[in-house]
């Protein structure tokens, strides 16, 4: 009997949510669903503390994290991943408001912040950016190289089973 948890991926258009999932799971549904109904569901079974956990990952489309996305897609989530593009400040400038908004519509749940496309930014600039971000669990990852992709999903899985 495998325990299942719903994970939602939120973030602006083009930050790399779908690419991160593609790196993490072997997608079975076509990406075209994201442009048609605004969401695509994937699944990955991970091991947490010796037990199998099934992550049902909802890749939710949106111009930004709040607008033009059916709110129902987020309902019943057990964990969330906020993805932003380290190269585009507009995708993380309002991240705290986005987090507050999520917390206002959903019951308390764990989440991680992920700055994607780190391969395009120098370590020095990343350090500066790090200081400007909220003090949450966050990762600088790269869907291109796969760096820290497994780790950020693993971290959320652990948080959800605590």
């Amino acid at each position: 009997m495998i325990l299942s948890k719903k994970v939602i991926l939120l973030g602006h258009f083009g930050v790399g949510k779908t690419s991160l999932i593609q790196k993490f799971v072997h997608s079975k549904f076509s990406e075209k669903y994201i442009t048609t109904i605004g969401v695509k569901v994937d699944k990955k079974v991970v091991r947490v503390n010796g037990r199998e956990l099934s992550l049902i990952i909802w890749d939710i489309a949106g111009e930004n994290a709040r607008q033009k996305v059916p709110q129902a897609y987020k309902m019943g989530a057990h964990g969330a991943i906020f993805v932003f593009d380290v190269m585009r400040p507009s995708t993380y400038e309002n991240i705290e408001d986005d987090i507050k908004h999520m917390q206002s519509i959903l019951p308390p749940m764990p989440f991680v912040l992920v700055g994607n496309k780190k391969d395009l930014m120098s370590e020095q600039k990343l350090n500066v950016l790090k200081k400007a971000l909220p003090k949450n669990d966050f990762f600088f990852s790269s869907a291109k190289t796969g760096e820290l992709v497994e780790e950020m999903f693993g971290k959320l899985a652990k948080l959800m089973t605590q």
Partner: peptide, 16 residues
């Protein structure tokens, strides 16, 4: 599991 997720999404999409 994935079919269940997508069916739920389609259902929610139609309602919204």
């Amino acid at each position: 599991d994935m079919i269940a997720g997508m069916l739920t999404a389609i259902k929610s999409f139609v309602v919204e």
